[in-house]
């Protein structure tokens, strides 16, 4: 008998169809009819992705807005929080330059007390960092190039080499640094030179005036150390 492959193919197809039970077919049809539309899932996915992107953009925008904030600003806490998050994810930046900018901004606003607190806090933090010398140099470099500040760097680095970094030494040096700061507009308009430690107009007490400065623990600072003159 001659074999016809096409006829055999049709019989094979019929056998394969017949292999599927009617019950299985009914079940498959019912399942398809009641299957939840997969469009919902993509829609949810799209919404989730959009929300994530929006949050990412918002975060970047918020971080950018918060970045120049100084102590006392509403976003300063946000700025510092982002830095801490960055540290958690392995960022080894000490933000020393940023702190220096903030100190200068505070000082320009006449907020010497806040500037002092920030210098003290920053020095304490930097001296405990992996590379205190580099960090302190970056910080003091950001505070300006006045000789008075430069002179303090050596003293600070001495502290870094073994003095109690949370104690009175840091407070004392912080105070002397703040007192030594020369703001940019002062440097331009003051023929006395960059070493003039006087504050801007109406911005804080003049050198040596006012109540005696104290350390972070309330101890008076020695007169020879508070005026910013070596």
């Amino acid at each position: 008998m001659a074999h016809d492959p096409i006829s055999d193919l049709r019989r094979y197809a019929a056998a394969l169809e017949a292999q599927v039970s009617g019950e299985r077919s009914r079940h498959a049809a019912r399942t398809a009819l009641h299957a939840p539309g997969p469009r919902r899932a993509p829609r949810r996915t799209v919404v989730a992705i959009a929300a994530t992107l929006l949050m990412g953009v918002s975060n970047v925008a918020l971080a950018a807005v918060a970045d120049p904030a100084v102590p006392g600003d509403a976003l300063y806490g946000v700025d510092r929080a982002y830095e801490r998050v960055g540290a958690l994810f392995g960022s080894d930046s000490t933000h020393a330059g940023e702190r220096a900018t903030e100190v200068m901004a505070l000082q320009a606003q006449g907020k010497s007390a806040e500037a002092l607190a920030l210098v003290q806090e920053t020095l304490t933090s930097l001296l405990q960092s992996d590379e205190p010398e580099a960090a302190v140099e970056e910080f003091t470099g950001g505070l300006g190039n006045s000789d008075a500040v430069k002179d303090k760097v050596a003293e600070i680095l001495a502290v870094a080499r073994g003095v109690d970094t949370t104690g009175a030494d840091v407070s004392r040096i912080a105070r002397s640094i703040v007192d030594s700061l020369v703001l940019p507009d002062q440097a331009k308009g003051d023929p006395g030179g960059p070493d003039n430690p006087g504050p801007p107009d109406g911005a804080g007490p003049p050198d040596g005036a006012g109540p005696p400065a104290t350390t972070g623990k309330g101890k008076p600072i020695e007169p020879g150390q508070s005026g910013g003159q070596p």
């Binding site: 197809a13 394969l16 169809e17 292999q19 599927v20 077919s25 049809a29 019912r30 009819l33």
Partner: peptide
């Protein structure tokens, strides 16, 4: 629709 799907299913499997 259910009937059509039921009839089409074995054809698809084959």
């Amino acid at each position: 629709l259910g009937e059509i799907l039921e009839q089409g299913f074995p054809k698809l499997v084959a």
